[in-house]
Simulated scan of single mutants.
Amino acid sequence: MNLFDATIMGIVEGATEFLPISSTGHLIVAGSLLGVHDERGKVFEIAIQIGAIFAVIWAYRERFNGAIKGVTRVSNAQRFVWNLFVAFLPVAVLGLLLNKYIKAVLFNPYGVAAASIIGALVIFWVERPSMLADRAVNARVRDVDDMTALDAIKVGFAQCFGLIPGMSRSGSTLIGGMLFGLSRNVATEFSFFLGVPTLAAASVYSLWKERALLSSADIPVFAVGMVVSFIVALVVIRWLIRFVATHSLRVFAWYRLAFGALILAAGALGWVQWPAA
């Protein structure tokens, strides 16, 4: 992988991490097209999520700073930190148990295509017109500080679907949050917040586990990917919170259908020789 490849992958990561279209799925496809989806490339794909993590921390620095300062004495800060912890637990446990199987079986463009299409159908069902107005009026939780531990762990279990490449971690938490009574804005913001421990744990675990594959020569490539993903993700975060407040997610469902269909068509027609894993 060279610096150009790292830049492209950083753009893909930053642009897709917090949209309900699956950053992992897009990185797998982009890496396959660039010819960098080998074992080291897979570590890179996970590691550059660190850039997206820092984008969330920077965009919500006042919130995180307040949580850190008030965690021992302010009830809202304590609840916020506790909710992130309990929401993170399900994906941490399942990720450790299923990581090897998921990478061996599902980390390929065909798996991404299938999950992308299935996820699109779920979005169409959840965002059907008859339900949009009802959720807007009857949302039970309208502020992240009003979430209970039960709300958080429900979203945490929804996040587990994001372990499947192409399904989307952010999409799973966003859709799950709305189904469980969170307003669109709260579901979106909590998805951002939950991404910090989730992506940080995945990145650190992958870097440590596969450290034998890496060397000091990889530092420039990894640094470029992280910096680019940070910049692009920061733009996406600020745009998405405004978009979700006033728009349906159906546009992302249409995109997912087209993305999945294009992957399948490219393989079937011989345009691209997709790797099996």
Score class of each variant (00 low, 15 high):
V86I: 15
A87T: 04
L89D: 08
L89M: 15
P90F: 12
V91W: 07
V93Q: 00
V93E: 01
G95T: 13
G95W: 14
L97W: 13
L97M: 15
N99V: 04
N99W: 04
K100P: 07
K100H: 14
K100T: 09
Y101N: 11
Y101E: 14
I102K: 02
I102W: 00
K103F: 06
K103C: 05
V105D: 03
V105R: 14
L106V: 07
F107S: 00
N108W: 04
V112P: 11
A113R: 10
A114S: 09
A114T: 11
I118G: 08
I118M: 13
G119I: 05
G119F: 01
G119P: 01
G119S: 08
G119T: 10
A120C: 09
A120I: 08
A120V: 08
L121S: 12
W125Q: 01
W125F: 14
W125C: 13
V126W: 00
V126K: 05
L132T: 05
D134S: 13
R135M: 07
N138P: 08
A139S: 14
R140E: 09
R142L: 12
D143L: 04
D145M: 06
D146C: 03
M147E: 04
M147Y: 10
A149V: 09
D151M: 12
A152S: 11
I153T: 15
